[in-house]
Each structure stands twice: as C-alpha cells, then as structure tokens.
Amino acid sequence: MVQIDTIKENDITTLSINGEVDASSSIQLDESLGAVVSNGDQKILVGCEGLNYISSAGLGVFMSYIEDINAKNLKMALYGLNDKVMNVFEILGLDQLLTIVKTKEEALSRVNEV
C-alpha cells in the first residue's frame, strides 16, 4: 500500500511517497511520476521520508523516466531515503544514475542548479 501526494509550490513539484512500493503498488508511483514528467515540470523533488519499502518494480519506475527527464532537461532529486531503501538503490548502482541526497534542502539546491 502506498500513498503519493503531488504538491506544487512555485516552480517546484514535490512527490511525497508514503508506504511500500512493490509489484502490486508500483503502478501508483508510475502514474504520479509519469504525470509530472509528461507535464514537463522542470524541478521535481521526490520525498522518500515515508517510503518504507521499495522493490525492483519501484526502481523500474524511476529507471523508466531517466531518459525522458534528460531529454526534456528536467531536474529530479530524491531525498529522505532510510538506510534500508537506500541500500536497494545502491545494490544496482542506481544511486550513481539518479540524484539522491539526504535532505529536502539539498534536493532543492540540486534542482535549482543552473
């Protein structure tokens, strides 16, 4: 079970993920992230403080938008991952292919970089 809230403040769009993203619930992450990317929102923050679990289905969603994000010149940063969730990204080296930082402030400064 996962709940994803999309909040727009000025030019920043924040997706806040709460719960578990697995093979059953990854569709919700796909819909939320897909909407933001296809809308062309320039600065995307993904708040993972409430993300308790992610499996390959969730990783697959993030991976599937990397090309579009780069092609459209959008900026996305994930923040607030706990150690267990971070470890899943690290096992596949996705921490090198996505921008993942500790705090919301760091994430903001990364998407605000020129």
């Binding site: 990854s26 796909d30 499996s55 390959s56 289905a57 990783l59 697959g60 969603v61 991976m63 599937s64 938008y65 990397i66 090309e67 579009d68 899943v88 096992i91 596949l92 292919l97």
Partner: peptide, 14 residues
Amino acid sequence: IIKSKKKGGVGLML
C-alpha cells in the same frame, strides 16, 4: 534497460 524505458527486469539481478 534505462534506454529502453522498460519498467522491469532488475528483480532477479537484485
């Protein structure tokens, strides 16, 4: 996988 925009395929790798 990233280039293909496929949403799966890394589970067994994990």
